[in-house]
Design a protein around this nucleic acid. Structure first.
Length: 213
DNA sequence: GTACAGATAAACT
DNA sequence: GTTTATCTGTACA
């Protein structure tokens, strides 16, 4: 069942925690891909220096100020698309960055989209297809065209398949230079599809319970 | 284990 | 015109 707008119209940390275990689905002309969300980060308000809303309203970050339940997609480092879910009421800029999925449907299509990322012949394990926000967007076929997409619409949405997650962990967010004092990254502990652990050794030390802002 | 290229939009001077 | 940015794969020691 697709999550309703009310799901996103709540405190961002609540939405982040509740998104873990939900299933992100993208229907395109190429086919449908879907995966269970295993890692997210919260970006909350103009007072959060790592949030794109920190400089105030701009044409780029305008979706953050809009209605909850819409997509905020942007190009990072000129190369990677990053997919965010807008949360909280209009006028309150906040979002959840989806960082990693455990692939469920359309694994062949994901692998085809990722082909060329690596040397030809090197097979990508399932749990690496959507590990990391840039890889996730590529495997799911998410691009700037999906910016401002309504997640309560028919093609890009999050659904609840009734799966529950144990072992939720919180840590500092990855890849940012400011705002590292907030432990607003939420992930499934021990899940191989979660980014940050293996390749680059930048797993944040702090691992704890849900933070109280 | 660390270093670095890659390639672009948007904010800033 | 310049700088930066929610990153990833590859190349090295």
């Amino acid at each position: 069942m697709t999550l309703a707008r009310a799901f996103y119209d709540r405190p961002t940390l609540d939405v982040a925690a509740d998104l873990i275990g939900k299933v992100l689905v993208h229907r395109t002309g190429e086919g449908t891909t879907a995966g269970a969300i295993v890692e997210v980060e919260a970006y909350i308000g103009e007072s959060d220096p790592a949030c794109h809303a920190a400089p105030g309203l701009t044409p780029r970050n305008e979706p953050l100020y809009g209605l909850p339940g819409f997509a905020y997609v942007y190009l990072n480092y000129g190369i990677h698309h990053l997919f965010n879910v807008v949360t909280e009421a209009a006028g309150r800029p906040a979002a959840v960055l989806v960082r990693a999925l455990e692939p469920l449907d359309g694994v062949r299509l994901m692998r085809r989209r990722r082909a060329g990322d690596r040397r030809p012949g090197a097979a990508i394990p399932d749990h690496e297809l959507c590990r990391g926000p840039g890889s996730l967007a590529r495997a799911m076929g998410i691009s700037l065209a999906d910016n401002r997409a309504d997640l309560c619409g028919p093609s890009l949405y999050v659904e609840d398949r009734g799966t529950t997650c144990s072992a939720l962990a919180w840590s500092s967010r990855i890849g940012i230079r400011v705002g590292i004092e907030y432990q607003w990254r939420c992930y499934v502990a021990g899940c191989p599809a979660v980014s940050g652990t293996r390749a680059h050794g930048r797993e944040p030390k702090a691992e704890g319970r849900r933070p109280v802002p």
